[in-house]
Amino acid sequence: MQIFVKTATGKTITLEVEPSDTIENVKAKIQDKEGIPPDQQRLAFAGKQLEDGRTLSDYNIQKESTLHLALR
């Protein structure tokens, strides 16, 4: 499925993911596309910060959802 990640600079990244993917996997995909190390990424959805060990389906993130990326 496709999801979107909006960066602090307003850029939107499109990612191909599975509901079973962990947040860690998603951060690795962002690193592949943007070169941002996962340990510098903070992802949020619906106002909640997402934890590495959880999956997209844990957070009820569905196709075409938009996550927000902040850098630490």
Rank of each mutant, 00 (worst) to 15 (best):
M1Y: 10
M1D: 03
Q2S: 14
Q2L: 15
I3E: 00
I3N: 00
I3T: 01
I3C: 02
I3F: 01
F4I: 10
F4P: 01
F4A: 04
F4H: 12
F4M: 06
V5R: 00
V5T: 02
V5A: 04
K6A: 09
K6S: 07
K6M: 15
K6W: 07
K6E: 14
K6D: 07
T7F: 11
T7Q: 06
T7C: 04
T7H: 12
T7Y: 14
A8R: 09
A8I: 07
A8M: 09
T9G: 15
T9I: 09
T9W: 08
T9F: 07
G10C: 05
G10Y: 05
G10I: 04
G10S: 07
K11Y: 12
K11F: 09
K11P: 07
K11S: 10
K11H: 14
K11N: 15
T12D: 05
T12Q: 13
T12W: 06
T12V: 15
T12H: 07
I13P: 00
I13A: 02
I13N: 02
T14M: 10
T14L: 07
T14E: 11
T14P: 12
L15E: 01
L15V: 07
L15W: 01
L15N: 00
L15I: 12
E16R: 12
E16D: 13
E16F: 14
E16L: 14
V17W: 03
V17I: 04
V17F: 05
V17C: 04
V17K: 00
V17E: 01
E18I: 10
E18V: 13
E18A: 14
E18K: 12
P19R: 06
P19T: 11
P19D: 08
S20F: 11
S20C: 05
S20M: 14
S20E: 11
D21Q: 06
D21M: 13
D21G: 04
D21I: 06
D21K: 02
D21W: 08
T22R: 13
T22S: 11
T22C: 04
T22Y: 12
T22L: 12
T22I: 08
T22D: 05
I23L: 05
I23K: 01
I23Y: 02
I23T: 07
E24W: 15
E24D: 08
E24V: 08
E24T: 07
E24H: 13
N25Q: 13
N25T: 12
N25G: 10
V26E: 00
V26I: 14
V26K: 00
V26G: 00
V26W: 00
V26Y: 00
K27D: 00
K27I: 02
K27E: 01
K27F: 02
K27W: 02
A28V: 15
A28Q: 10
A28M: 09
A28P: 01
A28W: 12
A28F: 14
K29T: 05
K29I: 09
K29L: 13
K29F: 11
K29V: 05
I30A: 01
I30Y: 03
I30W: 01
I30M: 03
Q31P: 01
Q31A: 14
Q31V: 05
Q31L: 10
Q31K: 11
Q31F: 14
Q31S: 12
Q31C: 04
Q31H: 15
Q31D: 07
Q31I: 02
D32R: 08
D32G: 13
D32E: 11
D32Q: 10
K33N: 06
K33E: 13
K33I: 13
K33L: 12
E34I: 14
E34N: 08
E34D: 06
E34S: 12
E34Y: 08
E34C: 04
E34L: 10
G35I: 02
G35R: 07
G35E: 05
G35D: 07
G35A: 06
I36F: 15
I36T: 07
I36Q: 03
I36E: 02
I36S: 04
I36G: 02
P37A: 13
P37L: 11
P37H: 14
P37F: 07
P37T: 09
P37N: 11
P37M: 09
P37K: 09
P38W: 11
P38E: 06
D39H: 15
D39M: 12
D39K: 07
D39E: 14
D39R: 14
Q40T: 10
Q40W: 11
Q41N: 02
Q41H: 03
R42K: 13
R42M: 14
R42T: 10
L43H: 01
L43R: 00
L43Q: 00
L43K: 00
L43C: 01
L43E: 00
A44D: 11
A44Y: 15
A44C: 05
A44L: 10
A44T: 13
A44K: 09
A44P: 00
A44F: 15
A44G: 08
F45H: 09
F45W: 07
F45N: 03
A46R: 13
A46V: 06
A46I: 08
A46M: 13
A46H: 15
G47A: 05
G47Q: 06
G47I: 02
G47H: 08
G47Y: 05
G47S: 06
K48A: 14
K48I: 12
Q49E: 15
Q49T: 15
Q49D: 13
Q49N: 12
Q49G: 08
Q49F: 07
Q49A: 11
L50M: 06
L50H: 00
L50D: 00
L50R: 00
L50E: 00
E51F: 06
E51R: 06
D52C: 04
D52W: 03
D52T: 07
D52I: 06
G53Q: 13
G53H: 12
G53Y: 13
G53I: 08
R54W: 10
R54D: 06
R54H: 14
R54F: 11
R54T: 10
R54M: 12
T55D: 03
T55P: 06
T55W: 04
T55S: 13
T55H: 07
T55Q: 09
L56E: 00
L56N: 01
L56T: 02
L56Q: 00
L56S: 01
S57G: 11
S57P: 03
S57M: 09
D58V: 04
D58L: 03
D58T: 05
D58M: 06
D58R: 03
D58I: 03
Y59Q: 03
Y59L: 05
Y59I: 02
Y59E: 04
N60P: 03
N60H: 11
N60V: 05
N60S: 11
I61C: 02
I61A: 02
Q62G: 13
Q62W: 15
Q62F: 12
Q62E: 15
Q62T: 13
Q62R: 14
Q62H: 13
K63I: 07
K63A: 12
K63N: 15
K63P: 15
K63M: 11
K63H: 13
K63S: 15
E64K: 10
E64P: 03
E64M: 12
S65W: 04
S65I: 04
S65V: 06
S65L: 03
S65N: 06
T66R: 04
T66D: 03
T66P: 02
T66C: 04
T66V: 11
L67A: 01
L67R: 01
L67V: 06
L67S: 01
L67I: 11
L67W: 01
H68E: 09
H68S: 08
H68Y: 08
L69F: 03
L69D: 01
L69K: 00
L69G: 02
L69Y: 02
A70M: 15
A70C: 05
A70Y: 09
A70I: 12
A70F: 11
A70S: 09
L71A: 07
L71M: 09
L71Q: 10
L71Y: 09
L71V: 13
R72M: 15
R72H: 08
R72T: 14
R72E: 12
R72N: 09
R72L: 13
R72W: 13
